[in-house]
Design a protein around this nucleic acid. Structure first.
Lengths: 136, 136
DNA sequence: TTAAATGATACCATATTGGTATCATTTGTC
DNA sequence: GACAAATGATACCAATATGGTATCATTTAA
């Protein structure tokens, strides 16, 4: 029951690193040194970030990735959703049979509240916020 | 990324039903009619609830399950943790290499906050709260 | 003795996540 | 044009968690 999976975590890290080197075109080869994961795996993650509109890629020799938007406009919530789908903590099955007042079910309400809070918080944090604290 | 899995959901439902019939010893056979799931699966869930101290079982003919505690003392958080382990939304890998100020990492803080909120809310809801709203 | 109940446990199915491998395509440079 | 360096696309495999079934052992009331 993790809010952030490995994929997402690596993606956020990669975005942070790319953000710190804005303007430069960074290849997987360059990034892999920083990230402690294998090249093919990082490639997959960057390709996905590209497809989802976080990065812009250039192919061929000297190619690589750059950010599509300013770091301050990339929200952690968006990155999570790009890799894990919409944040939906509140699904629960509790069917009508035993929970006929589904609209007022206290558990459903609680889960909804937790979800809303999570989304609000994660939406308020951007890549810019994360790199501010990074050394160097 | 669900806060409550099927297992847990069924367990909560079963506890609600048993709570509504406090004092009676309820067998799986009786419960299965109410719950729309198969008998073996429900048995497994009730056995687990028994092991975890939510129910007390009596074996042999006429046996079944009763609540070990008053419905107002069974917290949803506890049921979740009995089936899914401790609520830990905040694990993330973000290693020191790229996140050297791990103690002040903004993302870590945010995840911790979300987790705390979730635990607080789920801890405040008991089976008693859930059956209050139930019809019949 | 028998039937009705739970205890324990092993097993299988499915979905998700994590990760690897491979071939195709693009592009700068000699 | 040939080559090397890069990404695009895609197929595949492994590990884990979850959902669910099956079976045999044990207990107990009648």
């Amino acid at each position: 029951m993790k809010l952030i999976t490995r994929n997402t975590d690596y993606a956020i890290r990669a975005l942070c690193y790319i953000a710190k080197n804005e303007k430069k075109v960074l290849s997987v080869k360059g990034l892999v040194k920083e990230s402690k994961i294998t090249k093919p795996f990082l490639r997959k993650i960057l390709q996905h970030l590209n497809k989802k509109g976080f990065l812009k890629s250039t192919r061929g020799k000297g190619g690589g990735f750059v950010l599509m938007r300013k770091p301050g406009l990339i929200r952690v919530r968006e990155v999570i959703e790009a890799f894990q789908g919409k944040i939906q903590l509140s699904e629960h099955v509790f069917i009508k049979r035993l929970c006929p007042h589904i609209k007022v079910c206290k558990l459903k309400k609680a889960l909804d509240g937790i979800e809303k809070n999570a989304i609000r918080v994660l939406n308020s944090i951007t890549i810019k916020d994360l790199i501010k604290n990074l050394a160097r």
